[in-house]
Measured scan of single mutants.
Amino acid sequence: GKMTGIVKWFNADKGFGFITPDDGSKDVFVHFSAIQNDGYKSLDEGQKVSFTIESGAKGPAAGNVTSL
């Protein structure tokens, strides 16, 4: 299901970062391709987001990332 969290950091040049889930679980990798907006796909440190957990090739990653 949907989770919420805070963006820990995001490197716009490399197109990835990490989200710290509100439930205290392990930080989740986020790739820019998972960001659900029409414009420039980037996130800001400290931004609140909702997301799902998808299993990627390198382990769990955030999917369906939407800013709240």
Rank of each mutant, 00 (worst) to 15 (best):
G1L: 12
G1Y: 09
K2C: 05
M3H: 14
M3L: 13
M3P: 06
T4G: 06
T4R: 07
T4K: 08
T4P: 03
G5D: 00
G5P: 00
I6Q: 08
I6R: 09
I6Y: 14
V7Q: 00
V7W: 02
V7N: 01
V7E: 00
K8L: 12
K8S: 08
K8F: 04
K8A: 07
W9K: 04
W9R: 04
W9V: 04
F10Q: 01
N11L: 09
N11Q: 10
N11C: 04
A12E: 14
A12C: 04
D13I: 15
D13M: 10
D13G: 11
K14Q: 09
G15T: 02
G15K: 05
G15R: 06
F16W: 13
G17T: 01
F18M: 07
F18K: 04
I19L: 15
I19K: 00
T20C: 05
D22R: 04
D22Q: 08
D22V: 07
D23Q: 07
G24E: 07
G24T: 04
G24R: 08
S25R: 10
K26F: 12
K26W: 09
K26H: 14
D27R: 05
D27K: 06
D27H: 06
V28K: 03
F29L: 04
F29Y: 12
V30T: 03
V30F: 15
H31C: 03
F32W: 13
F32K: 08
S33F: 06
A34G: 14
A34N: 12
I35T: 03
I35D: 02
I35Y: 05
Q36F: 09
N37H: 12
N37T: 13
N37L: 13
N37Y: 12
D38E: 12
G39V: 14
G39S: 08
Y40E: 11
Y40Q: 12
Y40C: 05
Y40I: 14
K41L: 10
S42I: 14
S42Q: 14
S42G: 12
S42R: 12
L43V: 06
L43D: 01
L43A: 02
L43R: 01
D44N: 09
D44K: 13
D44S: 14
E45H: 13
E45C: 05
E45P: 12
G46Y: 07
G46V: 02
G46K: 06
G46I: 02
Q47E: 14
Q47Y: 06
K48D: 04
K48T: 07
V49C: 04
V49A: 02
V49N: 00
S50K: 10
S50G: 09
F51D: 00
F51T: 00
F51A: 01
I53C: 04
I53M: 11
I53S: 05
I53Y: 11
E54Y: 13
E54H: 07
E54P: 02
S55A: 12
S55I: 10
S55H: 15
S55E: 14
S55G: 15
S55L: 15
G56L: 07
G56A: 12
A57Q: 15
A57R: 13
A57P: 13
K58V: 08
G59F: 10
G59P: 06
P60R: 14
P60L: 10
P60M: 10
A61I: 14
A61P: 02
A62P: 01
G63A: 13
G63D: 10
N64P: 02
V65D: 01
T66W: 10
T66L: 15
T66D: 07
T66H: 06
S67E: 10
S67D: 11
S67H: 12
S67G: 13
S67V: 13
L68D: 10
L68Q: 10
